[in-house]
Nucleic acid binder design. Structure first.
Length: 561
RNA sequence: UGGGAGAUCGUUCAAUGGUAGGACAACGGACUCUGACUCCGUGAAUCAAGGUUCAAAUCCUUGUCUCCCAGCCA
C-alpha cells in the first residue's frame, strides 16, 4: 500500500521559524526541546507537544533535546523518567543522546544566582510565605517592596551561601530577583528564584537543600543548551518577560524565543496531571496504564498505535485558541490506522449455539480466510468449520424489526467465509424463556459462491466452530467520563460507570490462541482488539477492545449510546 | 477589577486585503461475503456595531464574550 504523500504541516510556529530561516536569524539553527517534569506519566496532551517539537526538528534539520525539568523534588522520581523515555521512544521519536536534566545545571544555576546578586539584581528575602503574598499586591494594586530588598550585596552572598549550606529551616529565606514590585505583570514583582526545601532529589539526593524555581531554571537551561525556540503552552505567556529578563541579565546574546501554543483538551476525559494522579491514587482506574487512561501508557495498552497518535497530532493542528477536541477524531485516527494494518479474525463475544442439522456429525472443514479484504499480501489463515457453531447473540432475533439483515425465523444468512445457512428451529430454556440454541441447515453449494438460484442473501455474520473455539476474556472499554467536559470540582461524579465491561465467556478463533500481546486485530463486524499487554497469556488470551467499528446499524436500530 | 492572550461550520485547523476551504461529526445515496472499508453527495461558520477600501474573516474604532496570571508548582 502506498502512503499518500502528506504535505508537511504548517502552523503559526512553523511560519515563525520559516521567517527566521529566511533572514538567517540563528544562522539557520533550529534547536528545540521537550521538557517534561518527571512527576507523572505523559499523556495525549504531551504527545501533541512531543510531535510538535520533534516534528519541527526533523522538518528543519534541527535538533530536539529531551530535558527533564526536575527542579522540584517533591513528586519526581526515576520511575517517571523511565516511563517518559519509554513513551517518547514508543511514539517514534529519538533525541539522539541529547537527554538532559535541569538538575545537571544546579551548580551552574547557583553561580548564575550569585552573579545576579553581585549585579545588585537579586536579594535574600526573609518574609514568610504569607507575608510575601501580602506584599505582592493584587491584580489592581501594586505590590510593596520587601523590607529585605536593600540588603547589601555582601550580606546577600553570605545568606545565600548559608541557605545552600543548610543553615536555615525550610521557608526561612528565599532568593528573589529585584525587578519591580509595581509591575502590572505580577510575574515580574520580584519573583522567587530559590526556595529552601529539605526534600531528597531523585538524582542529587541530599546534595541540595535549595532548589531553583521554574522561571529561573527553565530559561537558563534553554540558553545553556542553545535552544532557539522554546515552545510551551499558553499559560506561560505571562512568564515570557521574566524568561527574557533572566537570559538578558545572565547570558546576553543568547535569546531562545519562547513561543506559546494552546494545550490540548479532549472530550470525555481529563488531562490535568492533578486529576490523573487522583484517578490512579484513589483507584478509579487500575493504574497509569489503565486502558481507559489518556496517558501514552494507557493508550498503548488499549491498543492505540503510535502512528494513530501521530496522525491525530497532525489532524488537530497547532494554534492559540482554547480547544476541546472531539475524542471521535482520536478514535477515527485509530480506526484509520488499524483498518490498514490489522489482520482480520473472528470472535464471538456473546455466544449463541447453532447446530447445522444437515452437516455431518464429525466432519471438519478448513476454510482459507483472507487476513485482509483489501490487501492480499497479508495472506490467509485456516479457520475450521463444523456442525456446532457459536454466533453472536445479537445476530439472531426471534422477532426481527424491518431492515434487520441477520438471522431470524424463516431467514437465511451467510456465515462469513463459509456457507449460507437457513433457520429451522430454536430451543428455549423452559424456565427463563431464553433462547439457548438454534437449529439451521446449510446450503452446500454456497461455499465461496452465491446461491445457484440467484436469490440474494442480505446478511453476513461471523461465527466460531464450537470444538475449536478458544475461550477468552474480552474487556470492552468506553469513555472514562459520561460528559464531554467533566466539571473541575467534583469531576469524579462524572465518571462513566460503564467505562469497563468484562466479558468472561467469549470465544475467539483458533489462530488467536497464542496471540502476541499488543498486536491489533480486527474482529470482523465488532471492532479492533488486541491481547492485553499485562494479563493475556498463551492459551488464555485476554483481549482489550481498542475501538469498535463504526456501526450504522446501531444508529438505525437506536443504540443505547 | 490591572496585565496578558483568543474569538471562523456542531468540533478542529486553514484562508497572511482578492471565490470562506479541509478534516472529524451529522445526514442522504452507491458498493459490499464485515450494516466495516471505499466512493459519491447534502446541510453547516467569519462575536457585534460602525468605519477605511473597487474589494475586509483579514486593516481601524468601539463594544461583547472566553481563557491565563495574585504557589516558596511547572
Amino acid at each position: 500500500m502506498t502512503q499518500p504523500n502528506n504535505p508537511p504541516p504548517t502552523d503559526f510556529i512553523r511560519d515563525f521559524i520559516e521567517d527566521d530561516l529566511k533572514t538567517n536569524k540563528n544562522d539557520g539553527v533550529v534547536a528545540v526541546r521537550f521538557p517534561p517534569e518527571p512527576n507523572g506519566y505523559i499523556h495525549i496532551g504531551h504527545a501533541k507537544s512531543v510531535c510538535l517539537n520533534f516534528g519541527i526538528a526533523a522538518q528543519y534539520g534541527g535538533t530536539c533535546n529531551l530535558r527533564m525539568d526536575d527542579t522540584d523534588p517533591a513528586g519526581e522520581s526515576l520511575e517517571y523518567v523511565d516511563s517518559i523515555i519509554h513513551d517518547i521512544h514508543w511514539l517514534g521519536f529519538d533525541w539522539q543522546g541529547r537527554l538532559f536534566f535541569a538538575s545537571d545545571y544546579f551548580e551552574q544555576l547557583y553561580q548564575f544566582a550569585v552573579a545576579l546578586i553581585k549585579a545588585g539584581k537579586a536579594y535574600v528575602c526573609s518574609l514568610s510565605a504569607e507575608e510575601t503574598r501580602e506584599h505582592r499586591g493584587s491584580f489592581t494594586e501594586p505590590g510593596i517592596d520587601s523590607p529585605y530588598r536593600n540588603r547589601s550585596i555582601e550580606e546577600n552572598i553570605d545568606l545565600f551561601a548559608r541557605m545552600r549550606a543548610g543553615e536555615f529551616p525550610d521557608g526561612e529565606h528565599v532568593l528573589r530577583a529585584k525587578i519591580d514590585m509595581a509591575a502590572s505583570n505580577i510575574v515580574m514583582r520580584d519573583p522567587i528564584m530559590y526556595r529552601i526545601k529539605r526534600e531528597p532529589h531523585f538524582r542529587t539526593g541530599t546534595d541540595w537543600v535549595i532548589y531553583p524555581m521554574y522561571d529561573f531554571a527553565h530559561c537558563l537551561s534553554d540558553a545553556l543548551e542553545g535552544i532557539t525556540y522554546s515552545i510551551c503552552t499558553l499559560e506561560f505567556e505571562n512568564n515570557r518577560p521574566l524568561y527574557d529578563w533572566f537570559v538578558e541579565q545572565l547570558i546576553p546574546g543568547r535569546r531562545p524565543r519562547q513561543i506559546e501554543f494552546a494545550r490540548l483538551n479532549v472530550s470525555y476525559t481529563v488531562l490535568s496531571k492533578r486529576r490523573l494522579i487522583e484517578l490512579v491514587e484513589k483507584k478509579y482506574v487500575s493504574g497509569w496504564d489503565d486502558p481507559r487512561m489518556p496517558t501514552v501508557a494507557g493508550m498503548r495498552r488499549r491498543g492505540y498505535t503510535p502512528e494513530a497518535i501521530r496522525k491525530f497530532a497532525a489532524a488537530i493542528g497547532v494554534a492559540k485558541n482554547d480547544n476541546l477536541v472531539d475524542v471521535a477524531l482520536l478514535e477515527h485516527c485509530v480506526r484509520e490506522d488499524l483498518n490498514e494494518r490489522a489482520p482480520r479474525a473472528m470472535a464471538v463475544l456473546r455466544p449463541l449455539r447453532v447446530v447445522i442439522d444437515n452437516y455431518p456429525e464429525n466432519q471438519v472443514e478448513e476454510f482459507e480466510c483472507p487476513n485482509h479484504p483489501q490487501n492480499p499480501e497479508m495472506g490467509t489463515r485456516k479457520v475450521p468449520f463444523s456442525r456446532v457453531l457459536y454466533i453472536e447473540h445479537d445476530d439472531f432475533l426471534e422477532d426481527p424489526p424491518k431492515k434487520y439483515h441477520r438471522l431470524g425465523p424463516g431467514r437465511e444468512v451467510r456465515l462469513r467465509n463459509a456457507y449460507v445457512i437457513r433457520y429451522e428451529s430454536m430451543v428455549k430454556n423452559e424456565q427463563t424463556g431464553q433462547i439457548e440454541e438454534i437449529h439451521c441447515t446449510y446450503d452446500p453449494e454456497t461455499r465461496n459462491a452465491p446461491p445457484a438460484d440467484g436469490r440474494k442473501i442480505p446478511g453476513v455474520i461471523h461465527w466460531i466452530a464450537a470444538d475449536h473455539a478458544v475461550p477468552a476474556e474480552v474487556r470492552l472499554y468506553d469513555r472514562l467520563f459520561r460528559v464531554p467536559e467533566p466539571k473541575d470540582e467534583n469531576y469524579t461524579a462524572d465518571l462513566n460507570p460503564d467505562s469497563l465491561a468484562i466479558l468472561a465467556k467469549c470465544y475467539v478463533e483458533a489462530s488467536l490462541k497464542d496471540t502476541i500481546p499488543g498486536t491489533g486485530y480486527q474482529f470482523e463486524r465488532l471492532g479492533y482488539f488486541c491481547a492485553d499487554l499485562k494479563d493475556s497469556r498463551p492459551g488464555k488470551p485476554v483481549f482489550n477492545r481498542i475501538v469498535p467499528l463504526r456501526d450504522s446499524w446501531a444508529k438505525i436500530a437506536g443504540s443505547p449510546h
